[in-house]
Computed example of a mutant assay.
Amino acid sequence: MVLNFAHRGSLTEAPENTLPAFQKALDHGTKAIELDVQLTKDDRLVICHNHTFSKYNREINGRIRDFTIDQVKQVDVGSVFSEEFKGVALPTLEEVLEICPLDVKLNVEIKNIPVIYPRIEEILLDCLRKYDRLDNLVISSFDHVALEKVQQLAPDVELGMLFYYRILRAWEYAKDSGLNITSIHPNNVYTDRKFVEKCKENGFNVYPYTVNSVKRYEELVDFGVDGVFSNNPAVFGG
């Protein structure tokens, strides 16, 4: 089965990484959702891709890490998308888990660069355990040290290794990392048939990002990818 992740929810229909975006993805019948986690000043898991609020309000200085969850909840991240979503705030991971059915696979990406969040791995796993969400889940990151910490704390959790730039023989790097990597998540720009075949020969699923063109999606499926991350409901929809 090809598994297509709604990237930050249905971000063309609602503000990315918000409850309305995740709900719209679910309404499309998606079988998988990708989201990004960071920590607030008081160590709450908040869903956000960027490390600052500049995408939503350029007058707010500082990074997510500089604000408590109560302060984060006061920031309107919806108006910049449209008036329909005025007053929408960034959700906590708990809020997302409350609305996301267990049969929808989650890809939780730890956003650990450029900010390094001490203990985010432990806090994340505690939250997932609380909601019984360690199954049908993959934890991914560009920070491979964070993946190592997750493995030390929860050896059975699926790990996804993110790559932005091309590196020589990424599949060998993943295999030699000492991590129990389940999937490799490459930038789709350089994902070709050889890359996919080599990854799969070494036992890895391949989920390229971010694939919004149906034509490109069909090409990647022909290469043998196991799924993609996409902003396009025509790709991630059920």
Rank of each mutant, 00 (worst) to 15 (best):
M1C: 04
L3V: 07
F5K: 09
H7Y: 03
S10C: 10
T12F: 06
E16D: 05
E16Y: 04
N17P: 00
Q23T: 08
Q23H: 02
Q23R: 12
A25L: 10
H28I: 00
H28D: 07
G29R: 03
K31I: 01
A32C: 00
A32N: 07
E34S: 08
E34P: 01
E34W: 01
L39K: 12
D42E: 09
L45P: 08
L45G: 12
V46Y: 08
I47G: 03
H49F: 08
N50W: 06
N50G: 13
N50A: 12
Y56M: 07
R58F: 04
N61P: 01
N61I: 04
R63Q: 13
R63D: 13
I64S: 07
I64V: 11
R65P: 02
R65L: 14
I69T: 10
D70E: 15
Q71S: 12
V75S: 07
G78P: 03
G78I: 01
S79E: 12
S79Y: 00
V80R: 03
F81H: 09
F81Y: 05
S82G: 06
S82V: 00
F85W: 11
F85N: 14
K86I: 00
A89C: 10
P91Y: 06
P91M: 09
P91T: 11
L93C: 01
E95A: 15
V96G: 02
I99D: 08
K105W: 09
K105T: 14
L106I: 01
N107W: 01
E109T: 03
N112H: 08
P114S: 04
V115S: 08
E121L: 00
E122N: 10
E122S: 11
I123R: 11
L124H: 11
L124S: 07
L124W: 05
L125V: 06
C127E: 13
L128D: 06
R129S: 07
K130V: 02
K130H: 14
Y131S: 05
D132A: 15
L134I: 14
L134W: 05
N136Y: 03
N136E: 08
H144S: 01
L147R: 08
K149A: 10
Q151A: 03
G160E: 14
G160H: 04
M161F: 01
L162Y: 00
F163L: 15
Y165T: 15
L168W: 02
W171G: 11
W171N: 12
Y173Q: 11
A174F: 00
S177M: 03
I184C: 14
H185C: 10
H185R: 02
P186R: 11
P186Y: 12
N187W: 15
V189R: 11
V189Q: 09
Y190S: 13
D192A: 10
R193E: 15
F195I: 05
V196A: 06
E197D: 13
K198F: 06
Y209A: 14
T210K: 00
T210C: 12
T210R: 00
S213T: 03
S213C: 06
F223V: 04
F223M: 13
D226A: 07
V228S: 13
S230C: 05
P233M: 08
F236T: 06
F236Y: 14
G237Q: 08
